[in-house]
């Protein structure tokens, strides 16, 4: 463990907590893409199957349980509890265009052709594009509530910090995992446009609502 990865995990945890709080306190999931949240739940389920078979550390197991629980709690809030506020009309991204290519790619390019490893690889590829329905929805609605933009900033920062962690681990431990690195770079690049708008929103006129040009 290093400070970059710890900061990344905390940023990730913060993002999930911000999202849960936003939906729970506003009692609405307007502006939130349920499809992205489904992608994330699939990602953590496929990646954390080793929760019971492969003990790394108390921290690792605890965080996995928290991420899984929060992912499904978010799905419950969106699709059950506050279902009436779910914005079907703007959450229209075709997720099959994400699922099919990532499944094919995980079967073609992986470290080991075993079920657990292919599922891990699939979760890495899926996570890198899972935010697309959300970014697409924000661009369609043309704006994001400020709390949603904080969520996206924390979520985007988590994988950016992981990239620094991978650089550190390469030089400090000679460790690197190309699949995770390439997918992590793709994932972070997808946020660049959003990062720019989020950081410059202070200097733009309507600072309250962040408007993303379509």
């Amino acid at each position: 463990m290093n400070v970059f990865r710890l900061a990344g995990d905390i940023s990730h945890l913060l993002a999930i907590i911000i999202l849960l709080l936003k939906i729970w306190t506003s009692r609405s999931c307007a502006g939130i893409s349920g499809k992205s949240q489904v992608m994330f739940a699939i990602t953590y389920t496929a990646r954390y199957l080793d929760l019971f078979t492969n003990f790394i550390s108390l921290y690792n197991s605890t965080m996995k349980i928290i991420f899984l629980g929060a992912a499904y709690a978010t799905l419950y809030l969106i699709y059950v509890r506050f279902k009436a506020t779910y914005d079907h009309n703007h959450d229209t991204f075709r997720v099959e265009f994400l699922l099919i290519p990532t499944v094919i790619l995980s079967v073609l390019i992986n470290h080991d052709f075993s079920p657990l490893e292919i599922l891990w690889t699939f979760s890495i590829y899926l996570e890198s594009v899972a935010i697309l329905p959300q970014l697409f929805m924000v661009s369609k609605t043309g704006e994001a509530e400020s709390i949603t933009s904080h969520y996206l900033f924390a979520l985007g920062s988590y994988r950016a910090l992981y990239i620094i962690n991978w650089v550190y681990r390469y030089y400090a431990e000679g460790f690197y995992d190309l699949i995770a690195i390439v997918a992590g770079v793709v994932q972070t690049v997808l946020y660049c446009d959003f990062f720019y708008l989020y950081i410059t929103k202070g200097s733009r006129a309507n600072a309250t609502e962040m408007s993303i040009e379509a």
């Binding site: 990730h12 965080m63 991420f67 891990w120 992981y162």
Partner: peptide, 10 residues
């Protein structure tokens, strides 16, 4: 070879 891929990251 079946490398036991130990993923220690979240």
């Amino acid at each position: 070879c079946h490398r036991l891929t130990q993923h220690d990251e979240l």
